[in-house]
């Protein structure tokens, strides 16, 4: 059955499916129960699956993730919600020092099927701590898998794939895209693996690599570029750790130009690693250096200047131009 859903609603359906399919799946977080989450991603789930499976937790992120570890050792599959990106840090110790290393530390004995959902990114006019992009902290940590969806169909399928993974997944949700609509095939299996990137628009002149909220921006840039006769290929990375850059290498070898886009600050962001790998793998095909379009290396700014901070269509096209001017 194909349905038109918002990205937020698609996540809601995906979580519902996961709860239906496996009695060990539980959801825990602040305000996820009665309220259905501040973004309503878990709307209606507590009503249908009960307070034992959709749990309004005490206000303590270290507690949410730390108890999820114990629950996972006990055989449950916790799906933790962190309310906003900027509030994951009380849980950072648990995620980085415990969740990430448990398999290694236990000589491969302990697997932790935990999903940590984090709405991330800016563009919603919020106050501080509500618009950050902390994905690199997690992708940098060995032992964690990190993914992010960019459209409703992926949201629906990827959240279920993440939950059925036997290992911890940090699942970043592009909060400003929660309200964007798309078609979702509810009863068909996912078209792609969880840890696979995907070409979302074909083109010949340059390759744009983006993920999460920036995929829409990259696609808009490609549309605008086409009006000027530039045919941009857009790849939605989807998985940030492990990276799946095979399609990107193949693409860049064809186009000879590559621009990486993310909202997070540029310094040591995902773009740094990606640019290095593309350079190593595609050096003889490149017509110009790999360029990055990112947030600036400052804390996320006040709402009334955030549009100037966030990469937009113009900045992406400007970078594409620069690859041609090299």
């Amino acid at each position: 059955m194909a349905e038109t859903l918002t990205l937020g609603k698609a996540l809601n359906h995906g979580l519902r499916r996961a709860l239906e399919n496996d009695p060990k799946v539980i959801i825990m977080g602040e305000d996820v129960g009665k309220l259905g989450g501040v973004f309503r991603i878990t709307d209606g789930l507590q009503k249908d699956f009960g307070e034992d499976r959709v749990i309004d937790t005490p206000l303590a992120e270290a507690g949410i993730v730390g108890t999820a570890v114990g629950l996972a050792i006990r055989g449950f599959r916790p799906v933790c919600e962190i309310q906003f990106d900027g509030f994951v840090f009380p849980a950072y110790n648990q995620i980085v020092a415990q969740v990430a290393k448990m398999f290694y530390r236990s000589n491969g004995n302990v697997r932790l099927p935990i999903v940590i959902r984090i709405p991330y990114g800016g563009g919603i006019g919020a106050v501080e701590h509500h618009s950050e992009s902390p994905e690199a902290y997690f992708a940098h940590t060995p032992g964690l898998k990190v993914v992010t969806c960019a459209n409703p169909s992926d949201a629906y399928h990827m959240i279920q794939q993440a939950i059925s993974s036997d290992d911890p997944v940090v699942f970043f949700e592009p909060k400003r895209r929660y309200w964007e609509k798309g078609t979702v095939e509810l009863d068909r299996p996912a078209e792609a693996e969880l840890h696979a990137s995907r070409i979302v628009r074909e083109g010949t002149d340059a390759t744009i690599l983006a993920y999460g909220p920036m995929v829409r921006t990259a696609l808009d840039a490609a549309t605008a570029g086409a009006e000027d006769g530039r045919h941009l290929e857009v790849i939605d990375l989807r998985t940030l750790s492990p990276l799946d850059l095979g399609p990107a290498y193949e693409s860049v070898r064809r186009t000879g130009r590559c621009v990486v886009v993310h909202e997070a600050p540029g310094n040591l962001g995902l773009g740094s690693e990606i640019a290095a790998r593309i350079t190593e793998e595609c050096f003889y095909s490149l017509e110009s250096p790999v360029l990055r379009v990112t947030g600036y290396d400052v804390p996320y700014p006040a709402a009334r200047v955030e549009e100037e901070y966030l990469p937009d269509l113009d900045r992406v096209l400007d970078a594409v131009d620069r690859t041609f001017g090299w």
């Binding site: 602040e30 305000d31 009665k34 309220l35 501040v38 309004d56 005490p58 206000l59």
Partner: peptide
Amino acid sequence: YAISEPLERQ
């Protein structure tokens, strides 16, 4: 209350 959560959750 902490947003939607009554005191008993704390």
